[in-house]
Simulated assay, not measured.
Amino acid sequence: MCRSIKTLRPPFSEDVTEIDIQAAALQYVRKISGFRKPAAHNAEAFDRAVAVVAEATAELLSAIEVRGSAKSTG
Rank of each mutant, 00 (worst) to 15 (best):
R30S: 14
G74V: 10
S13T: 15
I64S: 03
A39V: 10
E55G: 12
G34I: 10
G74A: 11
F46W: 13
E65K: 14
T7H: 06
A51K: 15
E18C: 00
L26W: 01
P10S: 11
S72T: 15
K71D: 08
V16D: 07
L61C: 04
C2S: 12
Q22E: 13
T17V: 07
R3H: 09
S69T: 15
V16S: 06
K37P: 00
A70D: 11
D20Q: 04
A58T: 11
A49N: 14
N42C: 01
K31H: 14
L61K: 05
K31A: 11
M1N: 15
I5R: 05
A25I: 09
E59M: 02
S33W: 02
K37H: 09
N42Y: 12
P11W: 03
A54R: 11
P38V: 12
V66L: 06
R67C: 03
P10L: 05
D15E: 10
K71E: 07
D47P: 01
A45E: 13
A25D: 07
S72H: 05
A25L: 07
L61I: 11
G34Y: 08
A25C: 09
V53W: 05
A54W: 03
P38Y: 08
G68P: 02
N42P: 00
A70L: 12
T7C: 07
A70F: 04
A56L: 13
V29S: 03
A23L: 08
L61T: 07
S4R: 12
E14S: 10
T57N: 06
Q27V: 02
C2P: 04
E65M: 04
N42R: 15
A54K: 12
E14P: 00
E65P: 00
K6S: 08
L8G: 06
V53S: 07
Q27S: 13
A43Y: 08
R3P: 01
V66N: 03
I64M: 03
F35V: 10
I64W: 01
G34R: 09
A25N: 04
I5G: 02
K71M: 08
E18F: 00
G34N: 09
S72I: 08
